Simulated assay, not measured.
Amino acid sequence: MTDRHCAAPDRLHSLPCYRQPLPRESATRHIVVMQSAAACSPIVGTLEQPLVLNGENADFARRLHQVLVNATVGSHLYIMGDEAFIWRIHGEARSAGLENAEIDITRTLAGSRRVYCVHCGLTQTAGPESLLSCIGCDVGLEVREHFSQRLGAYLGVCSNPDQPCSGVRP
């Protein structure tokens, strides 16, 4: 999944640190879930008969759900895309019963990430900017360098406690 040993001493331990996935020789079924064809990692070509699901396909959500709930012991899931995509799919996989050891996540695309507002509890998709307005409560949020794997999101806290409901204006 993420490499816990790659963190620099000044880096928060909660921040995800991504690495290229390794083929799991012991896996009896390789399931590859990618956000788009552009998110594909070279590892896919080394896997024996992988089941590949592309997020751009019209029936992606239905097929993903079906594959995850029917995954058996010995299956290994490889998720590739931007942070918002991989952590959403990771959450779905965990809810379906897969263990962290059965999942590799690789950020292969720059793009959106998820931010959790501590004020209203909404998790929203956002870009890389460090300031944004919560779409749920309009509080101006500062995105902290704290990541919750359980939520699959960065922590967003009020950027101006003197005016908590003012939002962030460009």
Rank of each mutant, 00 (worst) to 15 (best):
V118H: 12
S148N: 05
I86E: 02
L131Y: 11
E83N: 06
L132D: 12
G127V: 11
Q149N: 06
L131G: 03
E92N: 05
V118R: 15
I86D: 03
T125H: 02
A126N: 10
E142G: 07
V118C: 13
R144K: 14
G136C: 11
T123R: 05
S112W: 07
G140I: 06
E142L: 14
H90C: 03
E142W: 03
V143R: 08
F85R: 00
A101S: 15
A110Q: 14
M80P: 03
L77I: 08
I135G: 02
N100R: 09
E142T: 09
E83T: 02
E142Q: 11
I86V: 15
V143H: 07
A93Y: 00
C120W: 14
C134V: 09
R88M: 10
L77Y: 05
C120D: 13
T123P: 06
D138T: 12
A84Y: 04
R88Q: 14
G97Y: 13
I79M: 04
F85L: 06
A101L: 12
T106I: 08
F147I: 07
E142S: 05
C137L: 09
N100L: 08
G127L: 13
I89K: 00
A96F: 06
L131K: 05
R113Q: 14
W87Y: 15
G140P: 03
S133D: 11
S130Q: 12
T125F: 01
E142D: 04
A110T: 10
R107N: 10
G152Q: 00
V115A: 09
E102N: 11
R107P: 05
H76A: 02
N100I: 02
A84S: 15
N100E: 14
H76Y: 10
L151N: 02
I86L: 14
L131Q: 07
C134H: 07
A84L: 04
C120T: 13
L132P: 10
G121Q: 09
S148Q: 09
M80H: 12
F147Q: 03
Q124F: 04
Y78T: 01
H76N: 06
E102R: 10
I105K: 00
R88D: 14
R94L: 15
F147G: 03
A84P: 05
C134S: 06
G91W: 00
I105P: 01
I135P: 01
G121S: 14
R113P: 09
V139L: 03
W87C: 01
R150N: 03
V143F: 06
G140E: 07
R113S: 06
Q149P: 04
A110G: 13
I86S: 02
A110K: 10
W87P: 01
S130W: 09
C120G: 08
C137A: 11
A96L: 04
G121E: 15
I89Y: 01
C117E: 00
E92C: 00
Q149T: 12
Y116C: 05
S112D: 15
G152S: 02
I135M: 04
S112R: 14
C117K: 01
L131D: 02
E129D: 11
E92D: 13
A126S: 13
G111P: 01
